[in-house]
Design a protein around this nucleic acid. Structure first.
Length: 892
RNA sequence: GCCGGGGUGGCGGAAUCGGCAGACGCAGGCGACUUAAAAUCGCUGGUGGUUUCCACAUGCGGGUUCAAGUCCCGCCCCCGGCACCA
């Protein structure tokens, strides 16, 4: 066998073996425990794999290989989330069809993943852009449509005429497009919308059932944003037939409502406005209309204008002035509020700005506060100045007054959500066509494909027949967005319009957003080649739910919420057997670039200490005078850690002054030039080293910086494992397992097993390093121990493990060998070293039998010279003996 | 501002249930092998001191306890998310 371990030969060898022997084929039959272990599938970008991808993929691979060795049937698939803007952008720039670009990128990704030795069942690969997949995405859309969960609506969007597209809020700055500074207008456009709000409560409640990171459950909870409150009607003064409806979570503060505020878009604005107030109100409304939501929220300064109109408070018949104010959002609740400045931050700010009275109706203690409030009191308390309700605690008051309002017909219980229905249309090319068409009215003999004037009856959407799916994308010469808000596909008139039974029809020209394909890919993996159905009931029952789902926290809300929504719809349709798709979720942390030390220097070459540096538009400037500074990348030798804990420049550079420098790792980015390419790492160290390094960096969930030096250390570990194997095999006679080694072996089995189960891969690796170092010290490492080491190492460094296993003369593959079991009797030492303390400070150690009685321990402890010296001349007050843990003498 | 997660050697991190702080690895120092270097192996490795020992050390300040990185109270800083949602 080879003296040196060469991954460039060994790794492709085993990858070939696994492929030729179908080692990782998913068992589609048979009983016994099963596990569905899933990665968030990647968008195959042109840049290829990033070191962040293999982090999560290695974690799931370790679990998958471990589970298989434990006799569990495993589904561990991989695929491509391949619709998306970059491929389309490339098509615009180079003319290459997005499908070609996508295919090339997928080929690169697949090669890179296979090079890393992941145990995916590649026969189950799916690609969201494949017509065979699109067919079923469209099929599910029809399911939503037929259940009334997909509808069309005029939604106000950011339309940019110059770019010919709708922009996301993030792409608009100060009313101009971020790219090109073109004007953007708010325009209502017909969009397809999915009724996710109908599932809001179930999406909320079922979060309790899943084993997910707390942060992600909190984020989804806040995103859904359920508030329980009341709808209250305030009649207009002088017109009892008309009322302003408000939503409030604090109906207990109704007696403190000193004004009302309605959104500028509110339909009652006109009706409420008196002639005297009209010019001011109209000016205010016009100004608000031209501002985007984002701009309106930019300033926390409250603005508004009095309409001149009044409404009547239903609880005390008080006349309440109605204002128009843009801090009231038209899209939430009823677009109107009752304002209670004493008990609401925003209303308080508004009342202060416009001199509106502030009336306390909730007191923290019980009695009313006489002095004017200096800040709003928003916590629960006791009612004051609230008539017959005085003295009631907030919660009780709320329940009572809602009942009373309901009885009088002035209001009712109401639940509101921040969650909005999901705008599901894009005006782009590279997405799934929506399988809907509309009747078209054309004058006799006209042909809309030739540009004949026609009317599309958008109010009569018709679902395609399921046997007509998939609806494929048309070929286009030009993928550029146009000036037609109907989208790029509107230009493909031959595709768009068709005649059937003497009548013209037009296809929907919007496409689905990128999220569509990822909403159900985990279902397709259970039965990826089914032509009759998106998946079979048997396959779904066999594999669902996903037992372990690993992916980035950036998907905490959108993907994970949308996928849950679709899944629940499919559950209601009887198509999936469980209500939640992902039983356990883990987010891998981000991998940052190497730590960088940065110093700052002004134009005169004088160093500026890091705390004195500010940033203006991303450029470093001196905080005191705003002078532009130069960033200087420093080497480790040029800095050292200061007594205060910060890094400072070496005296050779800084002179007498103390100059603090910035020390931190940055996100990997092309522009910063700190991107690490997996291909380079595999070439230099091998796939196993890359895998083990990424797991050894720290806890999976943590954000951590890349460090090129550490990977060399991991490579040394791999070489040491090989060296031990070489020496074990070179022996004429097998080395004997001494008791100490046997005990260590079993402790390591136990530790690695527990750590994999708990996904603490870094400490599992450290335990294997300890075992390897110990075996390396033996003159003749026993083959039995080396074989067990190979089994333990195998989920982490599979190529190395297979090679060692084969060298030991075992039948391939190590994946087929049952996972080793630790003998509990060998995991505990009969004798333990116990620290001996005097007054809580360690003064020595004694070796004692695990269950030594107190008197034996005390005698042994007192016999230690260092302990005796500490006890000299003192009175022993107390002795604490925790068997096997600690011996502590308390003496005065 | 609110919510969530963090802060431990020069660096990444370990300490899983209140019981030896710093496992394992990187960087550093010393040594072996070598003509030499690389590679490899061994030793060393928080800071300070009067160095077989002692003092001080887990962001800062208090507290509980025989014993605190771990529990409690009050702060500071970093990362992520939300941000007029009534």
């Amino acid at each position: 066998m080879a003296e040196r371990y060469d991954p460039s030969i060994v790794e492709p060898k085993w990858q070939r073996y696994w492929r030729d022997n179908d080692t990782f084929r998913t068992p589609d039959a048979g009983d016994g425990p099963r596990a569905y272990i899933l990665d968030m599938f990647p968008y195959p970008s042109g840049a290829g794999l990033h070191v962040g991808h293999p982090e999560g993929y290695t974690a799931t691979d370790i679990v998958a290989r471990y589970k298989r060795a434990c006799g569990v049937q495993v589904l561990h698939p991989m695929g491509w989330d391949a619709f998306g803007l970059p491929a389309e952008q490339r098509a615009i720039e180079t003319g290459a069809h997005p499908a070609e670009t996508t295919a090339a990128n997928i080929a690169t990704f697949r090669r890179q993943l296979q090079m890393l030795g992941f145990s995916y069942d590649w026969s189950r690969e799916v690609d969201t852009t494949d017509p065979g997949y699109v067919k079923w995405t469209q099929w599910i859309f029809l399911e939503l449509f037929e259940r009334g969960l997909a509808y069309q609506s005029e939604v106000s969007v950011n339309w940019c005429p110059a770019l010919g597209t709708v922009l996301a809020n993030e792409e608009v700055k100060d009313g101009l497009s971020e790219r090109g500074d073109h004007p953007v207008e708010r325009r209502p456009l017909r969009q397809w919308v999915l009724k996710i709000t109908e599932y809001a409560d179930r999406l909320l409640e079922d979060l309790a059932e899943v084993e997910w990171p707390n942060s992600t459950r909190v984020m989804q909870t806040e995103w859904i944003g359920r508030s329980d409150g009341a709808l209250v009607r305030f009649a207009l003064e002088g017109d009892a037939g008309e009322a302003i409806e408000v939503f409030t979570t604090r109906p207990d503060t109704l007696f403190g409502a000193t004004f009302m505020a309605i959104a500028p878009e509110h339909p009652l604005v006109d009706r409420l406005t008196t002639d005297a107030a009209r010019p001011a109100v109209q000016a205010y409304v016009a100004a608000a209309r031209n501002k985007s939501d984002r701009e309106r929220q930019q300033t926390k300064e409250k603005s508004g204008v009095f309409t001149g109109g009044y409404a009547i408070n239903p609880v005390n018949a008080a006349k309440v002035p109605v204002w128009v104010a843009d801090y009231v959002l038209y899209g939430y609740g009823t677009g109107a509020i009752m304002a209670v400045p004493a008990h609401d931050e925003r209303d308080f700010g508004f009342a202060k700005a416009y001199g509106i009275p502030i009336v306390e109706v909730v007191s923290p203690e019980g009695p009313p506060t006489e002095a004017p409030l200096s800040e709003p009191f928003v916590a629960p308390g006791f009612a004051v100045r609230s008539g017959k309700y005085d003295g009631l605690a907030t919660a009780e008051f709320k329940a009572r007054i809602i009942d009373d309002l309901e009885a009088r017909g002035a209001g009712e219980r109401r639940v509101e959500y921040k969650l909005r229905d999901w705008v599901f249309s894009r005006q782009r090319y590279w997405g799934e066509p929506i399988p809907i068409y509309f009747p078209v009215d054309v004058p006799d003999g006209g042909d809309p494909r030739r540009g004949a004037a026609c009317t599309i009856r958008y109010d009569e959407p018709i679902a395609m027949r399921r046997d007509e799916l998939p609806l494929r994308l048309p070929e286009l010469d030009d993928y550029r967005p146009g000036d037609d808000p109907q989208g790029v596909l509107a230009r493909a008139t031959d595709w768009r319009f068709f005649e059937r039974d003497g009548r013209w029809y037009a296809r929907e020209t919007n496409t689905m957003p990128q999220w569509a394909g990822s909403c159900w890919y985990f279902l397709r993996f259970t039965d990826p080649h089914n032509d009759e159905a998106p998946w079979s009931p048997e396959a779904a029952a066999r594999w669902l739910p996903v037992d372990l789902y690993v992916g980035g926290a950036e998907h905490a809300v959108l993907h994970l919420l949308y996928a849950r929504f679709w899944h629940k719809v499919l559950f209601d349709a009887g198509l999936v057997p469980v209500k939640e798709p992902f039983a356990k979720l883990v987010h891998q942390g981000m991998i940052l670039g190497e730590v960088e030390y940065t110093g700052y220097r002004d134009e005169a070459g004088v160093w500026v200490s890091a705390p004195d540096v500010a940033r203006r538009d991303g450029v470093p400037v001196r905080a005191s005078d705003g002078a532009t500074l130069e960033e200087v990348r420093l080497g480790e030798a040029q800095v050292h850690k200061d007594a205060d804990g910060g890094f400072v420049l070496e005296a050779a550079l800084a002179g007498a002054a103390t100059v603090q420098v910035e020390s931190r790792a940055h996100k990997m980015s092309k522009s910063r030039g700190n991107v690490v390419n997996p291909d380079d790492i595999v070439r230099a160290y091998g796939a196993d080293a890359m895998r083990v390094y990424e797991m050894f960096m720290g806890p999976l969930e943590a954000t951590k910086p890349w460090n090129a030096g550490s990977i060399a250390g991991v490579k040394r570990f791999i070489d040491r494992v090989w060296a031990v194997a070489v020496r074990a095999c070179a022996q004429e006679r097998d080395g004997a397992l001494d008791e100490a080694t046997l005990r260590l072996l079993h402790k390591t089995i136990a530790k690695v097993t527990e750590d994999i189960e708990a996904m603490r891969f870094n400490t599992a690796i450290s335990a294997m390093m300890v075992l390897t170092n110990e075996l390396g010290r033996l003159d003749a490492p026993p083959r039995e121990a080396v074989a067990t080491l190979a089994q333990l190492v195998h989920p982490f460094a599979p190529h190395l493990a297979e090679e060692v296993w084969e060298a030991l003369g075992r039948a391939p593959s190590v994946q087929a060998a049952p996972w080793p079991e630790a003998d509990p009797a060998l995991c505990e030492d009969p004798e333990v070293e116990v620290p001996v303390q005097v007054n809580g400070k360690v003064r020595g150690r004694v070796l004692l039998p695990k269950d030594a009685p107190a008197d034996v321990a005390v005698a042994a402890g007192r016999a230690l010279p260092t302990v005796a010296a500490q006890l000299e001349g003192k009175t022993l007050r107390k002795t604490i003996w925790v068997p096997g843990k600690i011996l502590n003498f308390i003496a005065r």
